[in-house]
Amino acid sequence: MSELLKVDKIKTEFQTDKGPVTSVDEVSFDLKEGETICLVGESGCGKSVTSLSIMHLLDRNGSVTEGSILFEDKDLAKATEAQMRKIRGNDISMIFQEPMTSLNPVLTIGDQLTEGIRLHMKYSKSEAKKYAIEMLKKVGIPRAEGIIDEYPHKLSGGMRQRVMIAMALSCKPKLLIADEPTTALDVTIQAQILELMKKLREESNTAIILITHDLGVVAEMADKVAVMYAGQVVEETDVYTLFDNPKHPYTLGLMESIPHITNPDDMRLTSIPGSVPSARNMPKGCRFYDRCPHAMERCLAEKPELKSIEDKQAHSIRCFLYENEEKDYEKKHAEKEVSS
């Protein structure tokens, strides 16, 4: 598998009346063909802004000010709007959280679906329509020949998300960015959509950046995971290592605070105290400092780097605990497990 995307220390800033606000800071990850990376984190952690930065879909006051986004050796951070137009919907496409608002209500499904096909694949009108019907069938829409002439309001949420997926995949993109694609859907519909995404991924070898806050979805879909907190990646590794051996105190806190249906009856949830710092007022040192149970003096003043901790697998963490105190911490954690 060859490298498809390499995001290297990007910084995204928004210019506001009160000065610039950094919402993504030093975010790096890379992705090979056919691989799925999940960006997880809570609201405001910068996971959506990261994906919008890749796609150049930021609001007018936002821009990538540092770092590079190498996609097939082209730097998207420096690409012009004209270059991006050729890439968007063609090499990289995106699906959004709200299938209700991301389809144009006054155009038929067919109009919206064939626009990109005709533009990027240079199909004639009738060829494009035939191809669009084929795509709708592929994503499991019944009566595709009829649905193609319908307007979006006729479809349910799950069906609309299927149309969005058909649209995103119609030009055979190399990279698909899915921003919370199932958050607005019911669980039984979510299971259908995830199943569909898995099937299509296998068929087309598309790489996926999946943005979600749901660790269940992460466990279902990801090859590797980047956990984000307050605009930074705090932990990155493959999905099995992340769930079997999470290291960063935030990742641990996140895992312990989810009420899950397989939890034992009397288990009490551990919550992370406090809330996420605001982007305007980021702490100088570690951004998790005031919520972290292991915070040290050093964390207040110094900024931790994202560093690899193991030689065998790729597992990087942004935390001082793992520089010298690794053994000490392991011991503490073991004690905690015994006592709880």
Partner: peptide, 18 residues
Amino acid sequence: NAYPIPNPHERNRNQMVI
């Protein structure tokens, strides 16, 4: 069954998708 389980080792379980 439709509820995703936060454990990647269980991802290949038999899911009843309706």
